[in-house]
Design a protein around this nucleic acid. Structure first.
Length: 418
DNA sequence: TCTGGGGTCCTGTGCCGC
DNA sequence: TCTGGCGGCACAGGACCC
């Protein structure tokens, strides 16, 4: 039996833990750059704010309904997530942290009648210890646990946010109830195609022929079908180390000059280096991409990604920056309005592994240099940068309504007046 | 004017060598 | 010697997730 535990409206709930006066009021959290809505309290959903709503288009609705708006505070959410997960760990023989607000728990040897009691106990403990409300769905497979969780969340008055799909009858009933577009793993494109063929519900999907599913939705779709039929094929994923690290951003304006983008890309590569060093890896492949603004059909569109194999594994920000800028120059085309760029590093090896390339070694002085730089930046806050990062320019993310880092920064810890 | 970021996995395509 | 077929590989792109 699997349980899917999911935090309700996670980012909005995190903000509320430290601002209890906001309980019962509409709260939204915005993406980086205060761009669009990425989390909503139930009250915010009720007044008609959709997921992904661009903030500037919904300003009026925010004002009319006194919606509390927050900039994303990922430091806070990450810390709250760790607290929730450490409680869940206690209840499972195995656990997969699926995302910042979700975990699959493997639970064996439990009787049907114990599930609801256990779910309520987990829910109670997480809420008492962290202030975060959660929903628990039990089912024989991961895909079905997703469905069970959805039912628990949709009908809280009947389920008290805990639901167990513990019979074939319940499975059929649930899949008949679930729209095809709401199935985990079926996105917008696949839903559209399936609906055209008369596949309206998850149950319809499980009755398609294997061959057809494999051909049109690949092996991924076929595995999903099995899992929904109650045959567990999606096991818990081990905590595999990352396969890629990406630093990508939209720009504050449309950039047309190579020089402007070069500065950004250099900074992204430098940040990739920091992330690599913090996990003790080198990378031996690097990609750079640029895109124009897809929301401006009136402007000519262009987008390109390029991958390069590095002559030696490295995690030096200086070296990565140099390679990234070289790659950028190969894909940059004049005459376009660029809106977004990113750097992705892949093919990791451990820092401790010796180099095998006899001819093209990195400059050995890079290692102590980067160590020193990391120490300085840790002590004095990101002050040391490359010359190519243009020290004159202070590029700042728009974060107009950022909450304090209540739980991770001593200066911002919550004050209690007695 | 202002529309996120960071991941994973799979497939189609073109090239190479057998 | 030429050609077709095929597997393996790298790469770009596209789908999905939260």
């Amino acid at each position: 039996m699997y349980a899917l535990v999911d935090c309700n409206n996670f980012y909005a709930s995190c903000e509320r833990v430290f601002r209890p006066e906001l309980n019962g009021k509409p709260v939204v959290v915005l993406s980086n750059n205060d761009g669009c809505v990425i989390a909503r309290s139930n009250e915010a959903k009720e007044v008609g704010i959709p997921m992904g709503a661009p903030a500037f288009q919904y300003q009026k609705l925010f004002n009319q309904n006194s919606v509390q708006v927050f900039s994303a505070n990922f430091t806070l959410y990450g810390d709250m997530s760790r607290r929730v997960m450490s409680i869940l760990e206690y209840y499972a023989s195995e656990m997969e942290i699926y995302s910042i607000d979700e975990a699959f728990l493997k639970m064996d040897g439990l009787k049907s009648e114990d599930l609801l009691r256990l779910g309520a106990e987990i829910r109670g403990k997480v809420f008492r210890w962290t202030g975060i409300p959660i929903t628990v769905g039990f089912a024989p497979t991961k895909a079905l646990a997703k469905v069970a969780n959805r039912i628990a969340k949709k009908y809280p008055e009947h389920t008290a946010n805990v639901y167990a799909m513990d019979s074939e009858e319940k499975r059929i009933k649930a899949l008949r109830w679930l729209d095809i577009g709401d199935v985990w793993g079926i996105g917008r494109q696949h839903a559209k195609r399936l609906e055209k063929l008369g596949v309206k519900t998850a149950l319809d999907f499980t009755r398609l022929k294997d061959d057809w599913v494999k051909q049109h939705l690949s092996i991924v779709g076929l595995r999903l079908k099995r899992d929904l039929q109650g045959v567990s094929v999606l096991g818990l994923e081990s905590v595999a180390s990352k396969k890629a690290i990406a630093v990508t951003r939209s720009f504050d304006a449309n950039y047309t000059e190579l020089e402007q983008i070069r500065e950004r890309v250099s900074t992204f590569a430098f940040t990739c280096g920091e992330k690599l060093r913090s996990q003790g890896s080198n990378c031996s492949s690097l990609s750079v991409f640029v895109y124009t603004n897809g929301h401006r059909p009136d402007l000519p569109q262009y987008g390109k990604k390029i991958s390069v194999d590095l002559p030696f594994p490295t995690n030096s920000g200086m070296e990565l920056s140099k390679f990234a800028v070289e790659a950028l120059k190969r894909i940059f085309r004049a005459g376009y309005h660029y809106k977004k760029a990113g750097v992705i590093v892949e093919k990791f090896t451990s820092e401790l592994e010796p180099q095998l390339n006899l001819f093209k070694n990195r400059d050995p002085r890079q290692v102590p240099l980067m160590k020193t730089l990391d120490r300085l930046n840790l002590l004095y806050g990101k002050k040391v940068r490359l010359a190519s990062q243009d020290p004159g320019k202070v590029w700042k993310m728009k974060q107009e309504r950022l909450s304090p880092r209540y739980s991770t920064n001593l200066d911002e810890v919550i004050r209690i007046m007695l």
